[in-house]
Amino acid sequence: MPKMLSTGSKWTTHRKLLTPAFHFKILENFLPTIANQQKIMFSLIDKEMAENDGVVNDIRKLITNYTLDAICETAMGVTVSAQLNPNSDYVEAIRRTFAVSILRFIKR
């Protein structure tokens, strides 16, 4: 089985390259985007609860679409609107790609 984690000087070098990307000052710039996407998710949760007597049937889908929106907008600067348009071609393509990847991983 291949070695998956690096150690020693290789690990130190990789960590020094990655650490600045996760500095608090950089992450603070993303807070407005994350907060906006959270508001959308909370409104969708409230809507579903109102329609289903206080029950959310599939929170996983809501959280997945929130995560896709937040990551695409913060990391790539692209607005996907997965939460407001969960059946878009892009969102469906992401779901299919993920499903195929999981199947390949399991069958390996």
Rank of each mutant, 00 (worst) to 15 (best):
V78L: 07
I59G: 11
C72F: 14
T64C: 08
G54M: 04
S88Y: 03
T67Y: 01
N87W: 01
A75S: 13
N57F: 06
R60L: 06
F98P: 08
A75E: 06
A75I: 13
R60D: 11
E92F: 07
Y66F: 15
I71T: 05
S81D: 15
K47N: 15
L62Y: 11
D58I: 09
A99T: 15
A70D: 06
L62A: 02
L68D: 00
A82T: 05
V100C: 12
V78C: 04
N85D: 15
N52V: 07
P86S: 02
E51M: 09
A50T: 12
N57S: 10
A93M: 12
E73S: 12
V78G: 02
A50V: 08
D53L: 05
A75Y: 09
E73M: 05
D46A: 15
N52R: 12
A82N: 00
M76H: 05
S88Q: 03
S43V: 03
R95L: 11
M49S: 14
M76K: 07
D69Y: 00
V78E: 07
A50C: 05
I45F: 04
M41R: 04
E73V: 03
T97L: 08
S88C: 01
E48S: 12
E51Q: 14
G54Q: 08
R60K: 12
G54I: 13
E48G: 07
Y90V: 13
I40D: 07
D46E: 15
F98C: 15
N85F: 08
A99V: 10
Q38S: 14
E48Y: 04
A75D: 04
D58H: 04
T74F: 04
E48L: 00
S81C: 11
N52M: 08
Q83K: 09
D69F: 02
D58R: 07
L84H: 11
A82Q: 01
I71W: 00
C72R: 02
V100Y: 05
D53A: 14
Q83G: 09
L84D: 12
K47C: 09
D69T: 01
K39C: 07
T67H: 01
G77V: 12
N57P: 00
L84M: 09
L44Q: 09
D69P: 01
T74L: 11
I63K: 02
T97Q: 10
T64H: 05
G54H: 11
E48I: 10
K39H: 11
N85V: 06
V78N: 01
Y90W: 14
K39E: 14
A99S: 14
N52Y: 04
